[in-house]
Simulated assay, not measured.
Amino acid sequence: RADRVGSQYFLNPSVRDAHVTSRGVTDVLCEACDQLGWTKPTKIQIEAIPLALQGRDIIGLAETGSGKTGAFALPILNALLETPQRLFALVLTPTRELAFQISEQFEALGSSIGVQSAVIVGGIDSMSQSLALAKKPHVIIATPGRLIDHLENTKGFNLRALKYLVMDEADRILNMDFETEVDKILKVIPRDRKTFLFSATMTKKVQKLQRAALKNPVKCAVSSKYQTVEKLQQYYVFIPSKFKVKCLL
């Protein structure tokens, strides 16, 4: 196991020699990583997880497919084990597809410790989502627009006790004109929280959001603009245009 000493999974040697050696990822989460086949941490996980375990706000510059979900999910679940609480973390994403992918990873990592998550996105019945929120899951993964709808209209639902905020693919969130919704969310969650911001690029909008949402953050940059993730598999198929829809299906 890469850099694993007891429960010190995902801590690189330079950090292990510092003052966080007693705060590694717990064994139960290490076992979950093993079950998922995560035997070696990715670059963003090596950079971000030790700092997250120290309680730092993080700006992660990483592409899709770089393992960034694990980079924020493991520290959040580790903290949840230390101080169990409902409505503990919120993950904002630009699309419903990404929201479901993140939820699957949270549930896979947290299955043995009973972690409950709720996906709050558009295109799905609001009433069923209201019922899910009424059960007060530990983690909410949401698109900004639908989350605002529930904050304004779902009776009894609020995020005043939130401990962690993640903005995943922040550049895409802002490019999709969710700035107003993000501002509203920031106004109704605690200022005393941990915040992780992940983005493929550091645009002016992302820099503005960083200044508004994060406290003394540390930057973990493992990607450059337009870089393709090493493990991402890409294929193309040459076919006549008239057959493309049938082949896609």
Score class of each variant (00 low, 15 high):
3 D>S: 10
9 Y>P: 01
9 Y>I: 13
13 P>N: 13
18 A>G: 12
26 T>N: 04
28 V>G: 03
28 V>L: 07
34 D>W: 07
34 D>H: 12
39 T>D: 14
41 P>N: 11
42 T>Y: 11
44 I>P: 01
46 I>M: 12
46 I>K: 05
47 E>I: 01
47 E>W: 05
49 I>H: 00
51 L>M: 11
52 A>Y: 02
58 I>Y: 05
60 G>A: 15
61 L>R: 12
65 G>K: 04
67 G>D: 08
70 G>R: 07
73 A>H: 02
74 L>P: 03
75 P>L: 10
76 I>M: 10
79 A>Y: 05
80 L>H: 06
84 P>W: 12
86 R>G: 15
86 R>Q: 14
88 F>M: 13
90 L>P: 06
92 L>Q: 00
93 T>H: 00
95 T>D: 05
97 E>S: 10
98 L>I: 10
99 A>F: 04
105 Q>G: 07
111 S>Q: 10
112 S>E: 14
113 I>C: 08
114 G>P: 03
115 V>W: 03
116 Q>L: 14
118 A>T: 02
118 A>Q: 04
120 I>R: 02
121 V>A: 07
122 G>V: 08
125 D>G: 09
129 Q>H: 04
132 A>V: 03
133 L>K: 08
135 K>H: 08
135 K>F: 06
139 V>P: 00
140 I>E: 04
141 I>G: 00
142 A>I: 01
144 P>S: 05
145 G>E: 10
147 L>R: 03
147 L>F: 08
149 D>A: 07
149 D>Y: 15
150 H>K: 09
151 L>A: 02
154 T>D: 10
154 T>P: 07
156 G>H: 14
156 G>C: 06
162 L>S: 06
163 K>M: 10
167 M>Y: 06
171 D>R: 07
175 N>M: 05
178 F>W: 12
180 T>H: 11
182 V>Q: 04
183 D>Y: 08
187 K>R: 15
188 V>A: 07
196 F>P: 01
198 F>L: 09
200 A>F: 01
208 K>W: 11
209 L>G: 02
213 A>I: 05
222 V>N: 03
223 S>C: 11
226 Y>R: 15
230 E>T: 08
234 Q>I: 09
235 Y>E: 10
241 S>Q: 13
242 K>V: 11
244 K>L: 10
246 K>C: 02
